[in-house]
């Protein structure tokens, strides 16, 4: 996705709004900040898929549980032209912004 003079990837930025949507606690934040989905616990309700403001939680046709980017970096390693990098980006007003706008 092109924005101004740079590109933005359409992937999870680990902001974790989905954490508060999961009825069964299948989503959790690891110590390193990455949000993980435990497919064994997930009940496939698609709430996180639909509510993600980035569209970063996705559903594949093969199974009911969704999937997301876990910042593992394999795309960085695989990119032949080294166009990708994994960076820490601070999120501002995460909570106010999205909780307010999405209802609580």
């Amino acid at each position: 996705m092109k924005t101004n003079n740079t590109y933005q990837m359409h992937v999870c930025d680990q902001r974790g709004l989905c954490l508060d949507l999961c009825p069964v606690g299948a989503l959790s934040r690891r110590k390193n900040g990455v949000v993980l989905l435990d497919a064994k616990v997930c009940v496939g309700c698609q709430a996180c898929v639909a509510f993600c403001p980035l569209g970063a939680m996705r559903k594949a046709p093969t199974r009911i549980q969704p999937f997301k980017c876990i910042s593992c970096g394999s795309c960085v390693r695989a990119c032949p032209t080294k166009a990708l990098s994994l960076e820490d980006v601070p999120l501002e007003n995460n909570r106010q912004d999205v909780y307010h706008k999405q209802g609580v």
Binding site: V43, Q46, A50, I64
Partner: peptide
Amino acid sequence: VDGLGNHPADPEKLAAVGTKIHR
């Protein structure tokens, strides 16, 4: 408990309609 305990005939359709109304 999982998302397909009812063994629906068309889980994809179910997920698509559900996602639409969640949005």
